[in-house]
Structures are given as C-alpha cells and as structure tokens.
Simulated assay, not measured.
Amino acid sequence: MQPLISRRQALAGTAGLAAACACGVNAQDTARPLIDVHHHIFPPAYLSARSGEVAARSRGYTQVLEWTPAKSLADMDAGGTQTAMLSMSAPVWFGEVDEARGLARMANEYAAGMVRDHPGRFAYFATLPLPDVEGAVPEAVHALDRLGANGVGLLSNYDNLYLGDARFRPLLEELNGRGAVVYVHPTVAGCCQNLVPEIAPAFLELPFDSSRTITSLLYSGALSAYPRIRWIFSHGGGTIPMLADRVSQWALARPDLAARLPNGALAELQRLNFDTASVTNAPALAAMLALVPPTQVMFGTDYPYVATLPQREELRRNLADPGALAAIEHGSAQRLIPGL
C-alpha cells in the first residue's frame, strides 16, 4: 500500500499531469477498453410499480424515467465503453417484505437478461431486498450462483441502518465466505432532507452518506472481520479521501474501538476501492489518489444521470499518466471483478 502524500503534493502532481496533456478523448482513445462500474438500470416493471418514488428521488433528471437498454448502449458507444456494470441505485424496500423480494428478483432477472442479450457489453451487481436480511441472503446466493451476477450492490443505508450495523452480519458473513465483490452506492439519510429546500437532497447528501457507511463499517469492526469482501464505493468514497486522517484518529480516543482494528484504521480505509463518478475533477481526483493507488480506482459514470464521454474527457485532462489511466479505465475492474 503506497503511503499517503500531502494534499498539496497531490494537487501539484495532478496539475502537472494535466498540464502535460490537456487533451480530450480521440478515436484512438475510445478504441481502448473502458469498463464503467457505475451504470444504473431502471427496469420497466420497477418504473411501473414505483415511478412516483423514482421521479421524486431523481428531481431534475427526467432522463431516468425514459431509460432503455438502447440508450445505455448508445451512450456507451459514444464514450468508448466496452462493458458497463449494471446496478440499481433506487431502493426496492418500501416497507413490505414480499414486494421488496419480488422487486429484487425482477431486477436481477432483468439485468441477467441484458447480459445474455448483449454479450460482452454488460455485467451486473445484484439487487437485494434489504433491510430484509432473511430475504437478502438467499437472493444474493441465487443471483451469484444461478443468474451469473458479478457481485452484489448495496445502498449506504436502509431505513437509516448503516452497513456496519450488527443486523447485516449474516449477509456480510455469506459474502465474505465467497470473497464477493460488494458495490456500495449512497442514498439519502433520514437525518438530512431539508438543508437547502431548492436542492434535491440526493444532490447534496450522497457523498456524506457514503462517508457515514464507510465509517460505520470501519468502527463496527466489519471491515476487519470480513477481509475477503472486495468493497467498491461509488463517487470516490464521498468525503472519505479528504477526511481519512480525521476519521482514523477516532481510534486514538477510543481504545475499545481500536481493538476492533488490528491493522489500524487508516490501513483499513486504504484497502477500499473507489469509482470516479463525480470525482474526475482535479481536486477530488487528487484526494482519492492520495489515499489509494490507481489500481484501486475504477471508472464510473452514474449513467443515466451523467453521460460517459464528458467524464472520460475530464479524467484524461486531469490524469495523463498512461499506467494510471489504464488501471482506472479497465485494469482495476478486470483485476477485482470476476468475469470481466
């Protein structure tokens, strides 16, 4: 694991790389492999059942309600994406166990169908009916063993329970035993709905909820207890790259919590993997690469909220090192995610 460098050094280094190659994406670039690990689906049956909730959560992003596989493929082709990892960022839990289990199964079968219908273009993270752990464990097993899922996708909280909560331990035990990839996407926390009325809560809050759930996993001891889980946190892990030192220092004040972290708090944070959705700008990219090497960073778009090509162009403007770009654009995902 490479050591942390100062934020000033990281920003200077990234600025230098950007100056060395202030270039976009050309035809040669788009011919190179690109794997997008952050590509959302909205199955028609889900939109039919819960379009009101999707519209409310996606305020200002009307393209979400008009998503189709064909539109995904068109955006992928425009940006040079070879394979997109599909996931659901919208919840399937609305308080009813049977509905949540049904929506999760439907989403997983729909994603598996996209993989079959478009060989090599799609892979997917399974949707689980959490916080129903009793239903989530068999759904994970079914999706991984029967439907060919490449990992599971989780939200940062479920009914305001964060992923380090002891109630999720049976699921984490199953996933750890398999050495599974677990992709975590943030959702809005119940605490923080009305900070700025003119701004959709998700727009402001998602990075902070990623940070909350990572901290929950860290100090509950889950990251240490389940070391075979291969975590990927979207949106660069929220604020964790900037706050890693502050978060890790809590262990100094609480020896009881430090005892849960035999390798140390910072070492656990430095084992995590991140995607680049929303963090291809120079300051955010610098912070992330000061915490982990490029081999733990993967390209992600957040499509259909954001198109692929502008993010790939921004990444290349701000990080010109060929080895780092190769890792982020495809190498890291191929190394970490089975079946790519």
Score class of each variant (00 low, 15 high):
Gly113Met: 09
Thr83Lys: 11
Ala111Ser: 15
Leu65Asp: 00
Ala111Gln: 15
Ala123Trp: 01
Pro119Ile: 02
Gly102Glu: 13
Tyr61His: 09
Val64Leu: 01
Lys71Leu: 15
Glu66Asn: 10
Thr68Leu: 10
Met76Tyr: 02
Tyr110Met: 11
Met76Ile: 06
Gly102Pro: 09
Thr81Ser: 14
Gly79Trp: 00
Val92Arg: 00
Ala90Val: 11
Gln63Arg: 15
Asp117Ile: 09
Glu66Val: 07
Gly80Arg: 05
Trp93Ser: 00
Gly102Asp: 13
Pro119Trp: 02
Met106Gly: 08
Ala107Gln: 05
Met76Cys: 05
Gly95Phe: 03
Val97Gly: 08
Thr83Gln: 11
Asp117Trp: 07
Arg116Asp: 06
Met114Ala: 07
Thr62Lys: 11
Met85Arg: 04
Thr68Val: 12
Arg121Val: 10
Thr68Arg: 14
Tyr124Arg: 03
Arg121Lys: 14
Gly79Pro: 02
Val92Tyr: 00
Pro91Met: 06
Met114Glu: 04
Ala100Val: 04
Val92Ile: 04
Ser72Ala: 15
His118Met: 05
Gln82Asp: 13
Asp98Met: 10
Lys71Ile: 10
Ser87Cys: 15
Leu103Ser: 13
Glu66Gly: 07
Pro119His: 04
Phe94Ser: 07
Gln63Asp: 06
Leu103Phe: 07
Thr83Phe: 03
Leu86Ser: 05
Val115Ala: 05
Met106Ala: 12
Lys71Asn: 08
